[in-house]
Computed example of a mutant assay.
Amino acid sequence: MELKNKHIVRSVERPIPIYPLTVTRLSRELSKIVRNPPEGCKIRITNNMFQWLALIDGPAKTPYYGGLFKILLDFPPNYPFSPPTVRFLNKIFHSNVGTDGSICHLDNIWVPVQTVESILKALVMLLIMPIPEDPMNPLAAVMYICNRFQHDYIACMWTCRFANAD
């Protein structure tokens, strides 16, 4: 409560409306991914239908090979009209992943016809082919461009340390 002009104003949080379309869409996407997951990807649901845990195997012929990357997908109540928040839970040395696990700006390229499957495929592609021209980790981006051997060595070491599949 706060006092404004000698009147008490109660600040009441309004519940965020959940659109029926959101639940229907998430259920349909989950069913499809469970039946036919993208290569190297799995989905686990938490107790909350609006939070999914994606597991992505590090692609072959990359410094991320052998790693198991955990990614949290947090869906807004108005999904698919707004994108989910997507972030790596493992530490990863990658030009398009911030130190907090955030991934390059999904908001800027999001359209409602995209799906969780398309997000997962895009993440696998980022592991295969980073985009250093749009970095969230400038050090990794510069290293990727200027000293690929050193970049790959560090990425491989971080994969072994932070994304151990065991």
Rank of each mutant, 00 (worst) to 15 (best):
E2H: 10
L3M: 13
K4C: 06
N5F: 06
E13H: 12
P17F: 12
I18Y: 09
Y19Q: 13
P20S: 09
P20T: 03
L21V: 06
R25E: 01
S27W: 02
R28K: 14
L30S: 11
S31M: 05
K32Q: 15
E39P: 06
C41G: 06
I43T: 00
N47S: 13
M49P: 11
A54Q: 01
A54T: 01
I56K: 08
D57Y: 03
K61T: 07
T62L: 09
T62W: 03
Y64F: 14
Y64Q: 03
G66L: 03
F69T: 12
K70H: 15
D74I: 07
P77Y: 08
P80L: 11
F81R: 08
L89N: 00
V97E: 07
T99P: 07
S102D: 14
S102N: 10
I103L: 09
I103E: 09
C104A: 12
L106Q: 04
W110I: 04
V111I: 13
L120S: 04
K121V: 12
M125Q: 12
I128H: 01
P130E: 10
P135S: 04
P138I: 05
M143E: 10
Y144I: 01
C146G: 06
N147P: 08
R148N: 13
F149Q: 12
F149S: 12
H151R: 04
Y153T: 14
A155K: 00
C156A: 15
T159S: 02
F162Q: 09
A165V: 12
